[in-house]
Design a binder for these strands. Sequence first.
DNA 1: TGACATTGGATAGTTCGACTGTCTAATATT
DNA 2: AATATTAGACAGTCGAACTATCCAATGTCA
Lengths: 214, 214
Amino acid sequence: MYSMWMAELAARAGCSVPTVKYYLREGLLHPGEATGATRARYDETHLQRLRLIRALTEVGGLRLETVHQVLDDIAHASSWHEAVGSAHTRLPGPFDDEAPPSAESAARVEAMLERQEWQLAPGHPQARRIARALDVLDGLGHPVSDRLLDLYAAALRPLAAYEVHAVHDVGPDGEPDVEPSVEAAVVGTLLQEPILLAIRRIAQENVSRRLAED
Amino acid sequence: MYSMWMAELAARAGCSVPTVKYYLREGLLHPGEATGATRARYDETHLQRLRLIRALTEVGGLRLETVHQVLDDIAHASSWHEAVGSAHTRLPGPFDDEAPPSAESAARVEAMLERQEWQLAPGHPQARRIARALDVLDGLGHPVSDRLLDLYAAALRPLAAYEVHAVHDVGPDGEPDVEPSVEAAVVGTLLQEPILLAIRRIAQENVSRRLAED
DNA sequence: TGACATTGGATAGTTCGACTGTCTAATATT
DNA sequence: AATATTAGACAGTCGAACTATCCAATGTCA
């Protein structure tokens, strides 16, 4: 396998040598193969890992500590579903403080989940986030209707089915080799979010322009 | 109109007095009405503004400088559509550096927009973001298919229509008073994003669990 | 073979954004 | 009048993510 010194690794990953050293120190990147007291060689696994770290931080907006945890989740994945779940709970979002949502909002989210026949452990972080978001929007005088929640759910349902099947099919054929597809799932969840949001904004602008042009 | 000293304002907005002073210094919050050399009174407009600032930073993840620009956009909005557009370009996302996307990805985004019959100024930031995201995902070995882009667009199209009409209807009946509905649009775009993303994750987890339970 | 740039590792310093603390003179409140 | 607050100025803090400096040991080329 092709191997290189740190300088080349850093250049190919698009970051500086001190930054690579920093990631090594923090345990985000596995050490290279030492070829002497002051030398080590790095290979494509290091390059791949560096690219993943930078994508998760720059695109996904994750903190390095979170990247660490997510990488551990991916590495220790025993089953696909479980790994995706734990990675999801790790992925940050707003409202990661401990403040509980109002009972009203929590109930509205519960009701939405039931209408969709979606099951979720009670107190699930995603449900809490939605409820807290509803609270904040209410407080700003821009409440969100149940109808909109249902529209979101209805729109995302087929999308999610397609996305999950896509990574699943490429993934474990028998059972082994869970890791690549778990990485695909985490990457897919997190790094496709900007695409989804950008398309939403484009769609809104187009609707808005058509309304303005009458 | 009800007015209060800074201490009460801070308490009601859920932040500290020094923080309010900081926002005043930075020009994010308009000064209170001075009642003497060392006193000033604040009213509900200050409270509303503080809540908006905190929602945009904490939920939307905006930096204070960006909040400043977005608030200016809202304040100087001459038309609804234009304001939404400029606010959208200000809202941050990944890839806000100047690096251009690959020609291939740019072309794929163009093609998707044409398939949707969406118009967009060339070099539009949202389109650039999508193209750059495609590049990054390609580089990680997790390419995004055109089919998925189309599915995203198809799923978000009716959502966007509903969302825009919702704020538009509440908005300018004749023509005046654009500002409240522009705020609604910006808030709606940005602060509803966490809800959308959380619902997507929940949907994915449910699909994933069903696959695991067979 | 020997000069010299480079490397890995350790440690300390920098930058940025967002606050937070302290100080002072002036003003409410009791 | 005594005491507690306040506005405003300004300096200090904090965490995250680097970045710079040293050093001794190597690799490389003349």
